[in-house]
Nucleic acid binder design. Sequence first.
RNA 1: GCCGCCAUGGCGCAGUGGUAGCGCAGGGGCCUUUUAAGCCCAGGGUCGCAGGUUCGAAUCCUGCUGGCGGCACCA
Length: 479
Amino acid sequence: MAERRRKAAELGTAGVRPWGVDFTPDHSCLEAAELAPAVPGEAGPQVRVAGRLLRLRPSGGIAFADCFDATGRLQLMARMDGPAPRLVELLSGLDLGDIVGATGAMGRTARGEPTLDLQELTLLAKALRPPAGKHSGVVDQELRYRRRYLDLLSTPQHQVAFRQRSAILRALRQVLDGSGFLEVETPILQPIPGGGEARPFITHHNALGTDFYLRIALELHLKRLLVGGLERVYEMGRVFRNEGLSPRHNPEFTLLEAYAAYADRSTMMALSEQLVGAAAEAARAIGPVPDSTATLTPPFRRSSMSDLVGAVLGTDPLALWDRPEELAEAGRRRGASIPERAPVGELFFALYEQLVEPNLRDPVFVTDYPVEVSPLARRGPDPRFCERFELVVEGRELANAFSELNDPLEQRRRLEDQARRRERGNLEVPPFDEDFVEAIEYGMPPAGGIGLGVDRLVMLVLGAANIRDVLLFPTLRPE
RNA sequence: GCCGCCAUGGCGCAGUGGUAGCGCAGGGGCCUUUUAAGCCCAGGGUCGCAGGUUCGAAUCCUGCUGGCGGCACCA
């Protein structure tokens, strides 16, 4: 790097500014290459291109360089018997990683390579550090994540997944915008975190002299907007959970939640099919997706949780509802570990999570969740269960949706029950949120709501095994 | 939080008890059609950190740090 600093200084004294020069290309590298004449030796059109030099091949009286931009590669050539002989020395003296603007006529070399015959060469940015991984690409995982730019630079294929992610986000918004949903933004700093079960991050506001929590979900504020008369709202944003890291967990991740007044669970089922289908299609339009993505084509089958659990246990869990010890025993025989002193709904749900969910491969709507594990969902015809579903794919929950509970009296009771669990030491249960219940007391229209894990969706569509492969800058321990 | 694996010049790697090497990158030189360009020369590492075993440690042992993978929890 010291050598490159010296070079930059030398260029400065020679009247070449190593940085801060403007240059407007009129062609991309790909476009320029396509303008090359078919026959070697012929002169094609004039072009201006800009990009980064990632290979240099000086060869005495002639010099070649490969210039890369977002569209691809273009060979540059300077020669002593060409239009600008002095550029041979200039080009030969540049370093890998330097960013240049180039002007000249497109031609084709004897070997058939589309090549820009340089007339002008402008240094736009001197690279003080060399690009890593010229041959191998950057393969060290830590380096890839900590210095993502080196990964993207050395292995341009890795850019594709992020272009696909962008297309998926756009597709999700298009579906919702097209269905009359209003995109909104709600607070990330919250006095009480709610809408899910997770340990929150805590931060402090100096002027107010009070602690705030980073949100763990979007639900409670979006429902306040339903009360306010914004009948269809959604938010796609970052939420934060103070939990462990894993190939499928990042402490901050992107959640999409949408709420529609005068709609219910079945509306949300149709919407989630639309969202997932659109996401898969959008990714496919940008780049390769694995064959398994084909299974993400709607419609998806649906099955009630009690049917699924019953199929594994070989006995109807509903018939054992009043005899939880027998239900627990049936689960134990299948190898499930049973939560102690848990209400029957929680016990039943534990059996589902352990014995059923991990084995669900194709997309399936699992319907009818126990009331005990669904504090914000409305009861169904069978009061033991809520009108709720989760879309499960490859053993993982992709979306969670329900007919929203809009009875303020019952909502208050359920959140008070939760608060008692918190007092018993479960820090993942949110504290009681009086402000939210008060909002519901003003009258919330019946509504359907859905939450969708966007990173999980991207992973699934792209076949990524690690969430870090779909996050540009995954959370790592500070260096 | 627990368990396992990994850590060697800027990047990619070799070296499993005898005092550290290769390719690329960087420096100097040669070369007028190269495309992972080639050839010649010189340089660069207290082998993640700290202890220990040994006549001798990159190599064996312990601890720590960081990464990856798995489990637990969740999306």
